[in-house]
Computed example of a mutant assay.
Amino acid sequence: MIKKVHHVAYRCADAKQTVEWYGKYLKMNFLLAIAEDEVPSTKEPDPYMHIFLDAGGGNVLAFFELPTRPPMARVVDETTPSWTQHLALELESMDEMLDIKARLEADGIDVVGPTNHTLFTSIYFFDPSGHRIELAVNSGASNLLSRLDEVKWPMLEEWARTKRAPQHARWMHDGSLASEGAKA
């Protein structure tokens, strides 16, 4: 059984810029750096800088800068929409989210949202290396998790058969949850 995620690692264009950016906007502390001329696991000669950031709650976000490799073109392959592959980080409050959004936008960084997902509200933006970041604040609607739990397997089975979006949890984004509450 997995105990927890030890760390999540991505490539970055510039290690110093990444440390400073995540510190400035997301208040992540720089934990440590490891640099080698050879990859320990494969013994491949490939100098790298490996940085580790404190993502809160015992979570660690890490990046590799690879100066001998071609520049990063796109984070995901050409056939994958940029909105799919992302890192979602939880915040404590909407005030905190809106403060970060304002700081990002003040520095010319495009931010999508806030987007209401019923269970949580999110904003989305890209870091300097092109990684999509989602910041989420839970709505306090944890009672609705049981509704999703009840339909998870039927939804998955229907999707596997049809490859069309099952409608079991449509209430999360279509506004029908509010009308259900009004009827009650």
Rank of each mutant, 00 (worst) to 15 (best):
Glu150Ile: 05
Ile109Trp: 10
His50Tyr: 11
Glu157Pro: 08
Trp171Arg: 08
Val112Ser: 01
His168Cys: 05
Leu156Ser: 14
Lys163Tyr: 14
Gly140Cys: 11
Pro81Ser: 05
Asp149Gln: 13
Thr68Met: 06
Ala160Asn: 13
Gly58Ile: 03
Tyr124Glu: 02
Thr80Ala: 01
Ser41Arg: 05
Ala13Pro: 00
Ala160Gln: 14
Phe63Ser: 06
Thr118Met: 13
Cys12Arg: 06
Asp95Gln: 10
Thr68Phe: 02
Asn138Gln: 10
Tyr48Cys: 04
Ser176Asn: 01
Leu87Gln: 09
Ile123Phe: 02
Glu38Asn: 13
Ala33Phe: 06
Gly108Leu: 03
Pro114Trp: 11
Glu44Asn: 12
Arg132Gln: 09
Ala106Val: 08
Asn116Ala: 15
Gln167Met: 13
Gly113Trp: 07
Phe126Ala: 12
Leu61Thr: 08
Leu53Phe: 08
Glu65Tyr: 12
Pro71Tyr: 04
His7Tyr: 08
Met172Cys: 11
Ser176Leu: 00
Ala141Trp: 02
Asn138Tyr: 00
Ser176Lys: 00
Gly113Met: 02
Leu104Phe: 12
Glu158Val: 02
Thr42Ile: 05
Leu53Gly: 14
Gly140Phe: 11
Phe125Val: 01
Val8Ser: 14
Asp77Gln: 04
Tyr124Arg: 01
Ile133Ala: 04
His173Glu: 08
Tyr22Val: 13
Ala88Lys: 04
Asp110Ser: 09
Gly175Ile: 05
Ile109Pro: 11
Thr42Glu: 03
Ala169Met: 11
Leu91Glu: 03
Ala35Glu: 15
Asp107Val: 06
Val75Thr: 08
Pro45Lys: 15
Ala160Arg: 15
Glu38Cys: 13
Thr121Ala: 09
Pro81Cys: 00
Thr79Glu: 07
Arg161Met: 12
Glu180Ser: 00
Ile109Glu: 08
Arg161Tyr: 14
Arg103Phe: 05
Lys16Asp: 15
Val60Leu: 07
Trp171Phe: 12
